[in-house]
Every structure is written in structure tokens, then in C-alpha cells.
Simulated assay, not measured.
Amino acid sequence: MPFTLATWNINSVRLRAPLVERLLREAAPDVLCLQECKSPFEKIPHDRFRALGYRWMLGRGQKSYNGVAILSRLPIEEVSALDHAGLGHARHIAGRLENGVVIHNFYVPAGGDVPDREVNLKFGQKLDYLTDMRDAFRAEPPRRSILVGDLNVAPREDDVWSHRQLLRVVSHTPVEVAHLGEAQEAGAWVDVTRAHIPEGRLYSWWSYRAPDWRAADKGRRLDHLWATPDIAGAAHSSRVLKDVRGWEQPSDHVPVLATFEV
């Protein structure tokens, strides 16, 4: 059963519900995973998305921040909602499609501004969250699974606009890259996006602070789409919808997509 999956940090699903609707109409993914919904789950505008054919919706929400959701045109049932690092945050939801594929939707903590856990609690929480992800994958190796989300780490040198200038900036520091790499290795996850787009600079986030984000193009690839080796080879057509960053009242992130023939 082929299906297309998209992941998008929407930065307030209620504020940007019209953008979600536009993506659902124009890109028509079968499954859309959202992060940073900034809404209690019951207040997400389900009816607006259901009217476009997305009858199934899973999620966890919080007022004003965090929050994850999965919208699907395909039947999907919830299998877990993990609280890594014991933060009490809405940062994970997982569902299983009828073909047995499990989709994990993660929103990893951003980590604050200072890359030092001794002086920045949020940075320590981020590292602990990634460590718990690693340990969970080691304890129960995933099978027939896809992992998507805003992982808040740009791991490769060409995942940022300047490797040298961002080495001490949260999201690209060596310690964060190492922690993400350990979590990826623990689950034997394949970076599907980079498997299909192996060379060149590739970004999914551009700061609101840039007066002309497109001209400056100082982006980072913070949003990821991974799969376990048993289904990674069934993926194709990976793409990053850069133009979405130019929509009216956009999120600072853009959708990342891939199609799976499973």
C-alpha cells in the first residue's frame, strides 16, 4: 500500500490551520505529522481537517507550547505516547497503520540558547531526551517503523548554512550531533531524506529574524524523516517544500515528505 508521509513543525496549528489545509489540498500527503501545535489536543480544529478527508487524528497537546499530532486519511491507531526525560511535555505520539507500519512523531526540545548543561537547564533536558530516545531504541529495536519530526539538530556540515560559524550554536554543536547520532544508530534508523538527496546544502528551517529569509538563506535542517532498514528501501520521492516558508504568516519550518511503497 503506497502512502505519502509529511512532517511539519507548524508553530501553532490553530493560528496556521489555513496553511495546514492548503498543504493537505496541494501536497495531499496521506499522513501528516505536526509538531509544536501549541494547543490542547481537543482544541485542534479536527473538523476542518476531517472535511478534507483526514478522518483519523492522534496527538498530545499542551496550552501555548509543545504538542504533536498525526492527521491521516488512512486508518491509524495509537500505540504509544512517550515522555522521555520525564519532562511532562507533549513531545511524542506514535500510531500504527493497517499495514503494520508504526509512525513515531517526535518534537525534541530546542535546548535554549547556551550549549552548556551546567548553566542552561534546557540544554541538559535536550541531551537527556535524546539519551532516553537512544535507550528506548536499544531496549526495543524498532521494526517496520518510520520516525519523523522536529529533532532540533542539524547533524551534517551541509545541513547548516555555515558549519564553522554554528559549531557553538545550539542545534549544531558536536555534543548534540553525537547524541542524535547515538539515537539514530540505536534504532538502526536510515535518514531517508539524505538517502535520496545525499549531496548539497539542505534546510527545513529559516529564522524569523532574517528580514529576507530567501536571499539570506541561512537555514538549518532540523526536521527529519527516518525509517528502519526493513522498509527504508521502499521509500522514494523525498522532498523539502522550501516555498512553503514564503506562504502568508508562515511557520519558520517547512514540510519534509517521502513516499513509501509498503
Rank of each mutant, 00 (worst) to 15 (best):
A51S: 09
R134Q: 15
D116R: 08
G59P: 12
R14F: 04
L225A: 06
K218L: 15
V31R: 00
E185N: 09
L202E: 02
A227H: 14
G112A: 10
A17N: 06
V101H: 08
E176I: 09
L127W: 03
V240C: 09
K122S: 04
A183N: 06
K126A: 10
L74E: 01
Q184I: 15
E185Q: 15
L74H: 08
A232T: 14
G111L: 06
L121V: 13
V79D: 08
A195E: 09
H92W: 02
R209S: 13
G86F: 07
P2W: 00
I231V: 10
W206C: 08
H172P: 09
S238T: 15
G67Q: 07
R245C: 14
G111C: 09
E26Q: 06
E21W: 04
Q184G: 02
A186P: 05
S204N: 06
M133D: 01
D230Q: 09
P250Y: 07
L58P: 07
W161H: 14
P29K: 03
W205A: 01
L23T: 02
A139K: 15
V254W: 14
A136Q: 11
A69V: 15
D113G: 10
V31T: 01
D113A: 13
D47H: 15
F49G: 01
A210P: 01
R164G: 03
R22I: 07
A136M: 12
D159Q: 08
G200S: 11
S162Q: 04
G86V: 11
R144I: 01
L121T: 12
Q249W: 10
G67C: 04
L97F: 09
E78G: 13
G200I: 11
D252N: 14
I231K: 02
W205Q: 11
W206D: 05
A28N: 10
A235K: 02
S80Y: 01
E118C: 01
V102K: 04
S207W: 00
L97E: 06
L121N: 05
F123E: 11
G61W: 10
P109H: 00
D243M: 01
E261I: 04
H196S: 10
H163F: 15
F49E: 01
L130W: 00
P174L: 07
L257N: 00
Y129T: 14
W213L: 10
E36I: 06
S39K: 05
R73I: 08
W189C: 07
F106P: 00
R16N: 11
D83T: 12
V175G: 00
W189A: 04
A186F: 02
R209H: 14
Y129F: 15
Y107L: 13
V68K: 02
M133S: 02
A215Q: 02
L23I: 11
G124E: 12
L32F: 13
R25Y: 04
V153L: 01
V244I: 12
P109Q: 03
W226T: 11
Q35P: 09
W161D: 06
R55W: 00
P115S: 05
V244G: 07
L166M: 14
A210F: 05
E199F: 12
G219L: 09
E199Y: 13
E182N: 05
L257F: 15
D159W: 06
V175C: 00
V160W: 10
E261R: 11
R134M: 15
